[in-house]
């Protein structure tokens, strides 16, 4: 028995490595980034669009706006396609076809983000430039690329949520004479709404955090976008673009950009976790 206790203790210590990793990340990102936010003043840092590292001006408003614009537009695309696919796979698809579609979605998640970015640059960007005007590298181009990239997240988590709805709901609704689609949108989607919300929020976290694909298609200019055809720079691309040569205050300011990103992601994650838990609770208690 003594040996058993020792093993349990050892495993417990190993099991805490994920938590300690998270703690280390938090501590180090904040330690590097927070001083410059305090020094510049949070008002200046977050609300000014003047980013000029060589003269010591660090305002990230245009990037916050950029990330926001890209993420919101990407989520429209990602949600429509992702949720649509989840419904098809979960409720309307013959099992044989689902066996093909599911690995397709998984594979879509496995393709490297640089490849998405690259294919975006050589296909979507010229199309936008020719047919819609503007430089092509734009909010729209990044949203399309990101929309495709977050689709697997939205699809797989929404499917889990739909699957967690008791099958008797479906059977009851069909028995009352509702069509499959009526059942889906009046019963299943309602019952799974917390889980689906969690899926969308987690997808949003993916979109905010995506770096390499966005760098390649967003244009990276330092201005607040006025339309979906304007180029933007996001928080993530700011870090990745300038980290290579930054030093001193400039590097600190990039870490501060990371702090901003980190806080946004943690808020989104926590909301998604709460939503997912509520969703799981609904499935069980009723």
């Amino acid at each position: 028995m003594k040996q058993d206790k020792l093993i349990a203790l050892a495993l417990l210590m190993v099991a805490f490595s994920a938590v300690s990793g998270l703690a280390l990340i938090t501590v180090f990102i904040f330690k590097e980034g927070l001083p410059i936010i305090v020094k510049t003043g949070p008002g200046n840092f977050f609300l000014s669009s003047d980013w000029d590292p060589s003269s010591g001006n660090f305002g990230i408003f245009s990037m916050i706006a950029g990330s926001l614009a890209v993420t919101v537009c990407a989520m429209v695309i990602g949600t429509v396609f992702g949720l649509g696919l989840a419904i098809v796979l979960g409720e309307f698809c013959p099992p044989g076809l689902a066996a093909i579609l599911k690995p397709v979605v998984e594979l879509l998640a496995g393709i490297p983000s640089v490849v998405y970015g690259f294919v975006g640059v050589v296909t979507i960007v010229p199309l936008i430039r020719t047919y819609l005007g503007g430089p092509g590298l734009s909010v729209l181009a990044s949203s399309i690329v990101l929309g495709i990239m977050v689709l697997p997240t939205v699809t797989s988590i929404s499917m889990d949520a739909l699957r967690a709805v008791p099958r008797s709901y479906w059977q009851g609704s069909i028995a009352l004479g509702a069509t499959k689609w009526q059942t889906t949108h009046m019963v299943m989607l309602k019952a799974a709404k917390s889980g689906i919300a969690a899926a969308i929020i987690l997808g949003m976290g993916r979109a905010v955090g995506e770096t390499m694909a966005v760098i390649m298609v967003a244009g990276n200019t330092l201005e607040v976008p006025h339309g979906i055809l304007d180029p933007v720079r996001t928080l993530t691309s700011n870090i990745a673009l300038e980290m290579g040569y930054a030093s001193g205050q400039h590097r600190e300011a990039l870490f501060a950009t990371g702090v901003t990103l980190f806080v946004i992601i943690m808020i989104l994650n926590t909301v998604a976790l709460v939503m997912a838990r509520r969703g799981a609770g609904e499935g069980r208690t009723r």
Binding site: F16, L24, I25, F28, I29, G205, G209, M243, L261
Partner: peptide, 22 residues
């Protein structure tokens, strides 16, 4: 432990990069 793992899963790769760098 689960919260730690879930949060870690949601952190963007660029943040891992920053952390690994420093």
């Amino acid at each position: 432990i689960r919260f730690g793992a879930d949060c870690l899963a949601g952190i963007p790769s660029i943040i891992f990069g920053l952390f690994g760098f420093v």
